[in-house]
Design a protein around this nucleic acid. Structure first.
Length: 219
DNA sequence: CCAGACGTTGTT
DNA sequence: GTCTGG
DNA sequence: CCAGACGTTGTT
DNA sequence: GTCTGG
């Protein structure tokens, strides 16, 4: 699955990589340990333009009266049908930029974290869905997002049976296209990719308070 | 009709 | 909002 | 995802 | 064990 990840470039660098027209996100700073509830970058389309915005990690359906529970992931196999996700899936998709992400391997002696990243070291586009939600208590409106997961492939499958969907650049346009609303057509974009590298890292990453380059360093 | 749920993961 | 269960 | 909390009363 | 917070 995907419950922690890494983003280090500044917003302008991310925007260039994803061919973004306008940056509306603030500078969230480099993070080696992004966790659920954090603010994250997301690339989404608005009135035909590609924007880099910020989202709270943990999707809240627009009709929800409650702040929780958090939906940090959505299964590719069912995202089109689930009440909490289907509307976002057909109308509000985004790319979530990442240097890489973490998975924990279960071992007899505990859990071992791994950092997983592109072979060429470039940023990954994680498949995301998003929603606008108004807090009934404060009237505050926020954008929230979830990462779509799928069956793992390649080296990652030796660690874990789930991983985030990573979209190849050739699929970015279709994924962001808000006029593309046919669930079956959209679902065809969600394939696991296998060209990733991984290495074990320190258990420092287990604590969300630890946010240093040490988190991604091979051990 | 109204009430209540609406999610993923891992583990057992 | 929309579906399912009672 | 992992870490950390997990409770009430009364008083300040 | 299970929920909440980050």
């Amino acid at each position: 699955m995907c419950g922690r990840y890494v983003v280090t470039p500044d917003p302008d660098t991310i925007a260039r990589f994803f061919d973004v027209d306008e940056v509306i996100a603030g500078d969230l700073g480099a993070s080696y340990n992004i966790a659920p509830t954090d603010l994250i970058y997301g690339v989404a389309e608005h009135r035909g333009r590609r924007l880099l915005g910020e989202f709270r990690w943990g999707l809240i359906p627009w009709w929800s009266k409650e702040k929780g529970p958090l939906h940090i992931n959505a299964r590719a196999e069912s995202v089109a049908a689930k009440p909490a996700f289907r509307d976002a899936f057909s109308r509000r998709r985004c790319l979530i930029p990442a240097d890489g992400f973490y998975e924990w391997q279960n071992r007899p002696d505990g859990k071992q974290p791994f950092f997983i990243h592109a072979v060429d070291g470039k940023m990954l586009a994680l498949a995301g869905i998003w929603s606008r939600w108004t807090d009934p208590e404060t009237g505050q409106e926020i954008s929230t997002a979830a990462i779509v997961t799928t069956k793992s492939a390649g080296a990652v499958s030796s660690l874990h049976d789930r991983m985030p969907v990573i979209l190849a650049p050739s699929l970015w346009n279709a994924w962001l296209d808000r006029d593309l609303r046919d669930p079956e057509e959209i679902a065809r974009l969600l394939q696991p990719i296998s060209e990733l590298e991984l290495h074990p890292v320190s258990k420092l990453v287990n604590r969300v308070q630890n946010n240093t380059p040490e988190c991604v360093k091979p051990i």
